[in-house]
């Protein structure tokens, strides 16, 4: 009988005592549950850093092409891999003055990220300008431009119909 009582103690009671001792003198719990819903999200902010316009100031600009560093700032915010494409929304530069005799094709405009070495020629077809290359949620890039007009193109003031698009890879 004594052995039976002792066995009952060992099997039933002792584990509870040990459990209490391992958690300190007492331990009380309460729990709150929550949810996070995180969809794929992307945002692109384009800022023209030079708002005064781009001027051709001499024959050299025509002969060698006009370089403009960091013409645009692109701020990318994305929680998924991404790429940015660029296209012209119109095949020609938009003349701002009615006396301008004819339009200039957008192909004289070339762009590249400031960290890249080669330009792409602007066209109405979307071209990949850059792809995500790190695991940062936010990235800031600068876009260089180059203009290669021929001597035969007419003078005047023009708008560049640029369109940047941020897309998931």
């Amino acid at each position: 009988m004594k052995k039976v009582l002792f066995l009952i103690y060992i099997i039933v009671i002792a584990p509870f005592c040990c459990r209490a001792q391992s958690g300190g003198l007492f331990s009380l719990n309460q729990t709150a549950n929550g949810t996070i819903t995180l969809p794929p999200l992307q945002d692109l902010r384009v800022t023209a850093l030079n708002n005064t316009g781009i001027s051709f100031e001499g024959a050299k600009d025509f002969a060698n092409g006009k370089h403009v560093n960091s013409q645009y700032q692109l701020k990318v915010l994305s929680n998924i891999p991404w790429y940015i494409s660029v296209r012209a929304s119109d095949p020609v530069l938009t003349a701002l003055t009615p006396t301008t005799p004819r339009d200039i094709p957008v192909s004289i405009v070339r762009l590249k990220p400031s960290t890249a070495s080669s330009y792409i020629n602007l066209s109405t077809a979307a071209q990949t300008l850059m792809v995500s290359e790190n695991n940062n949620l936010e990235n800031t890039y600068y876009i260089d431009m180059k203009f290669d007009p021929s001597w035969t193109l007419p003078g005047g003031s023009y708008n560049i119909p640029l369109e940047f698009t941020l897309s998931p890879q």
Partner: peptide, 13 residues
């Protein structure tokens, strides 16, 4: 991206 469920356990000792 996804849906995550979490819990916060409060313990008094």
């Amino acid at each position: 991206p996804g849906t995550y469920n979490f819990s916060i356990l409060f313990t008094m000792t």
